[in-house]
Amino acid sequence: MAALSTPVAHPKPVLDKPLMHYGSRVLDRLAPGASQAEYRLLDITPLTPHFGAVLGGVDLNRPIGDDLAEELRQALLEWKVIFFRNQTGFTADHQLQLAGVWGPPEPNPFFPKTETVGVSRLAKDAKAAGNKNIWHSDHSFMVNPALGSVLRAVEVPAAGGDTMWADMAAAYDNLPEDLKDRIEGLTAVHDWEPSWGALMNDEQKAAFRKQWPQVEHPVVVRHPRSGRKTLYVNEPFTTRIKGLSDAESRELVDILVLQARIPEYQVRFHWEADSIAIWDNIATQHYAINDYFPQRRVMERIAIAGVPLS
């Protein structure tokens, strides 16, 4: 053990600037060079000027034709998270049809299953409500993280229980230029164990580890459809950045995950009966607000199978 008088060596700071951006922000809805789409079948009501919109004019209980499917894909690409209300009679089978506009379902190995393959039921009641939540991107601990998710409200509390999303392309756009240079080309390790593993014993963790090893993704990914640069680091699953010392990695991860907490990058949705949300899981993070104790909140989710990130 070193003598008390020995100076303590601190890691060199990554930045000599504040961790959070101050002043005006760039909030672009579209990727550079992209043009705004025209919609013939969908009514678009923005929730913020650049991020999140409620869609109307369609009944999702009916078959989704090619023209509507293309408009849905374009709306999600443009707004990153889209919502529907008053979809009375919407079932798990309708939900699978809707998710199929983007791709096949991708089950979460840690979620309870329902009778419909690919659908996960997320229920929180008086015993579970009030637990800590955290900003995250679904399935980033997988080799091919989910492209998106479709979430429908089965039972909602009379008040509370909203969900928030953060635009991680905007988060990247507003990073200081020296930090963008710093993270360009870096790779992060993602792992389920620090979060889901906290609920398991050693034997259970060892069994899951055989199927779900640690994975690596770029710190900055290019969206697989738009090509737009997006910050891809989240609090529960990103454990470290390769090639850096433990101290440098921890400092840099802490800076990057804070960006999801900036209000200008966020949209908030209040759930009502028969509401549906669809989000781009590469371009966003989300946070389920757990403020409705002792009421009950039941949702059903389908994740959409992903592709390798670059």
Rank of each mutant, 00 (worst) to 15 (best):
R296I: 08
T230V: 15
V150W: 11
V253H: 03
R40V: 14
T230C: 13
P63M: 13
F208T: 04
K127D: 15
D138R: 02
A126G: 07
Q74M: 14
E272K: 10
V54L: 00
A260Q: 06
L4T: 15
F269M: 07
R182S: 11
V8A: 15
K180S: 10
H21F: 10
I302A: 02
V253W: 01
P176M: 13
E203N: 12
T6M: 13
R225K: 12
W165F: 10
I302E: 00
W196H: 14
T230A: 07
L55E: 08
A277V: 10
R152P: 07
H10M: 15
I134D: 02
G100W: 02
K132C: 02
L60H: 07
V58A: 00
D291L: 04
R182I: 09
L151H: 08
L244W: 10
Y22C: 15
V117L: 14
R182H: 07
G306Y: 08
G130I: 09
D167E: 03
L15S: 15
V154C: 06
N86V: 01
L47T: 01
P157G: 09
I44C: 05
G306P: 03
A99D: 05
K242Y: 08
L60P: 04
D254W: 00
D125T: 08
R297Y: 09
F111S: 10
F84E: 06
H270V: 08
P176K: 05
R152F: 02
D67V: 14
F51L: 10
H190I: 11
H136M: 00
H50I: 06
N108S: 11
V101R: 05
K12Y: 13
T48F: 00
I241W: 08
Q259D: 10
N108Q: 02
A188N: 01
A159Y: 06
L122W: 03
L68G: 04
A34F: 00
L256W: 04
E235W: 01
V267W: 01
P157V: 12
P145F: 03
D280Q: 06
H270Y: 05
H190G: 03
R268F: 07
H270T: 13
G33Y: 07
F84S: 01
L47R: 04
L231C: 05
P11H: 13
L175R: 05
K124H: 08
G56D: 11
V307Q: 12
V58F: 09
Q97V: 14
Y287R: 07
V215Y: 03
H139A: 12
D178Q: 14
H50L: 04
T238I: 07
I64S: 00
A9R: 14
A69V: 01
I302L: 07
L309M: 12
P294N: 13
G118Y: 00
N234V: 12
F84A: 13
G160C: 09
Q295S: 15
